[in-house]
Every structure is written in C-alpha cells, then in structure tokens.
C-alpha cells in the first residue's frame, strides 16, 4: 500500500456491516478498490474527527447513526464545514432507507451516489470504483 492509495471512510455503526464492506473491498477484482485504505467510524462524531485529520477520497455513509442522521454529515461536507482545507471527498449514501423520499433527501444533502442495502458485493465494488475513478 503506497501513500498514493485512495482512502475510503466507512461511516457505519454496525460492526457486521463494517466487516462486510472491508471484506468485499479487500477482495475486489479492481486493484484501485482492492488497494484502497479503508478507515472506519461508528458515529458522526468519529467521522468528523477522521475527516478533519486526513484527506479522504470517498465516504460511504450510513443514514441511521447513533448520534444523528448521516445526511447531516453530507450537508456539512457539501458546505465545507467539515474537513476544511482538505480534499473534498465523494459521498455515497449506503442505507437501508430506500424510499423515494429518502433518496431525494440524500441528493438534497449533497450525496454523490446512493447504494441500497442489501447490496450485492459487485454493486458495492462498482460504486466504489466509479467514485474513486473520479478523483
């Protein structure tokens, strides 16, 4: 892993899901995805700390977090309130809230992508690859 490897921040309160994402990404056929450094945060607070201390390329963001809705973090990122002076990461909402109004809210909050739970491993890899390639 080099310093040039992309960095992904996984904001997810469920350990099982964190394990899953990491396992999926680590086994991805696409090298950029496979080699990405995956940071994790189990709450919005932890995510803010991570985002202000280092550059992140992609945030995989859960909605139902213990200290609030993930969308608030998306808005903060879009407004530059979090991670000021850092590279602006892409934000993909990864959530089990899949109703049309949930999706609309995510886009409103400035999310760049949307991944419904449950997802197939290939979908996750594809979404991550797509957003990493944009950087």
């Amino acid at each position: 892993m080099t310093a040039d490897n992309p960095r992904i921040l996984l904001v997810e309160d469920e350990e099982l899901n964190r394990t899953l994402v990491k396992a999926v990404l680590a086994r991805a056929a696409i090298a950029a995805v496979r080699d990405a450094e995956v940071l994790d945060a189990s709450s919005l607070g932890a995510a803010r700390t991570q985002l202000s201390s280092q550059d992140v390329d992609l945030v995989l963001l859960d909605m139902n977090l213990p200290d609030g809705n993930g969308l608030s973090l998306a808005s903060e990122l879009a407004a530059g309130k979090v991670g000021a002076g850092r590279r602006k990461p892409s934000v993909v909402a990864v959530t089990a809230s899949v109703l049309p109004q949930d999706r609309a809210a995510a886009i409103e909050a400035g999310c760049d992508g949307f991944l419904d739970k449950p997802y197939a491993a290939a979908d996750l890899v594809a979404v991550v690859a797509e957003h990493l390639s944009k950087r």
């Binding site: 899949v98 109703l99 197939a120």
Partner: peptide, 21 residues
C-alpha cells in the same frame, strides 16, 4: 412499513453480502 423495510434490509445486507463473498 418504511421502518420495517429498513429493519429487514439490515440483516439481509449481511446475509446477502457475506454469502456473496
């Protein structure tokens, strides 16, 4: 119903995800 959908999807995510792996 919205909540139900959310709650059912959460464990399904792990089931589908890990079995996919």
């Amino acid at each position: 119903l919205a909540n139900m959908s959310h709650e059912l999807r959460t464990p399904l995510n792990a089931i589908i995800g890990f079995s996919d792996l």
